[in-house]
Design a protein around this nucleic acid. Structure first.
Lengths: 234, 234
DNA sequence: AAGTGGTCTAGACCACCTA
DNA sequence: AGGTGGTCTAGACCACTTT
């Protein structure tokens, strides 16, 4: 049973992701949304509240809600913390690996029945070819992922791929620390071992509490600042 | 004009801070709280939602809401991200400086009228004397702070002191990055320049959007992991 | 079975922003 | 002035946890 506000939030998030609602565009008013989805205004506000926490929209009293899909999202998902790239530095995302792996240790830590995961490893680089982030996404395997291995990610996006398979995040946890690059990671990033990187681990759960995705990211501290906020803003 | 749910949240937060509601203790049911505060259950739920986001309580369907005041809070305030110390490592907090400073650059960045701040600098150390964090708190100056300089912090707590002066956080932003220790910070921490520390900057706003507090923290990555969460948990 | 939180409704009044 | 979000109410039904 999916709550109505979750269904509304997913529908609006889908519009944002697909570009029907573009960055900085204003959403319809809450009363209009209530009429469109056939729910009360309170339910609409629950959905908008969720999208705010997900960092997809910003809401301004007296003006309306606006899409804020500018920051690059870690792991391309509904990250709570935005990882903001320094402005004016265009980057590219390169797929390192897309496959199926057994990770018993990770499965045991998350208390999963199966140890099989869909694995997506990616590196983000500047136009000059300097690698600035390494993202490892681990998604508990589902039978329907066979098509993913054959055809690749939908629109090159993990988020879009997961949405196609009915995986919609409803919450999660994030841990942030500093990592000293080991030889493996340093080689993948084209850097020397011993450099200090920001490391984040995000675990996303669906509405039933099942693990959807585990993303571990290594972020170059000169290019990324993690930011989040809540409550009354100035 | 303070919203009712904010007043309720502040009252409950005060009980938690004072220890009337202890860690892991169950709060009264939502209907009981509604009757006690003379508001509707919806307003109580807004207040509890705020306390959840602040990390002060956890709520479980069918059981109730429980105080979760275990993690050490950065800057002793309503930090959104908990900074979790490694377990079993008792620490002490030492006051380095408590005074009044002019910080024009900070005031300009935050668009404040006055450049005067109450400044509190503190170092956290292990029992063995190893310094593991440096917290710098900057609070826009108020006339009533004269007593703080004379008598010190209430209960040794910035949060308690601010509450006494009517300063209650309602929201804020946080930025997280990696800092390489400079000579000044290294000396204060008794460490060598060049070490990588986690750096966070938290800005707290009150219900009117005024800046309450700016906290900059340097955290030893082996002793602290930043964590946060929201939404459905497993 | 009783109590708890989770969700939802329909209505209301207010402060804020835009025109 | 009209539209927008912010807050609040009183009631309802449900799923989950506890007794």
């Amino acid at each position: 049973m999916v709550a109505k506000y979750q269904a509304v939030a997913s529908a609006l998030a889908e519009r944002i992701r697909r570009g029907e609602l573009e960055d900085r565009e204003r959403l319809p008013g809450e009363l209009d949304l209530a009429e469109e989805f056939g729910v009360s205004r309170g339910t609409i506000r629950q959905a908008l509240s969720f999208l705010q926490r997900s960092g997809l929209i910003e809401t301004w009293t007296g003006s309306g809600s606006f899409v804020s899909f500018d920051g690059v999202r870690i792991g391309d998902g509904f990250g709570w913390t935005k990882s903001l790239e320094r402005r004016g530095v265009p980057t590219t995302l390169k797929l390192l690996a897309l496959g199926r792996l057994e990770l018993p240790a990770l499965a045991a830590r998350l208390d999963l029945g199966s140890a099989e995961f869909l694995c997506v490893d990616r590196v983000r680089s500047t136009a000059e070819g300097e690698a600035i982030s390494l993202e490892r996404s681990r998604i508990p395997w589902r039978a329907s992922f066979d098509t993913v291995l054959a055809t690749g990610l939908t629109d090159g996006s993990i988020q879009a791929t997961m949405a196609e398979h009915g995986l919609i995040g409803a919450g999660g946890t994030e841990a942030i620390t500093v990592a000293i690059l080991g030889s493996t990671d340093a080689e993948l990033l084209g850097r020397r071992p011993g450099e200090a990187f920001l490391e984040t681990e995000q675990i996303t759960y669906d509405a039933f509490g099942s693990v959807i995705e585990i993303v571990t990211s290594l972020l170059h501290p000169a290019h990324f600042t993690l930011q989040h906020s809540f409550g009354k803003q100035p």
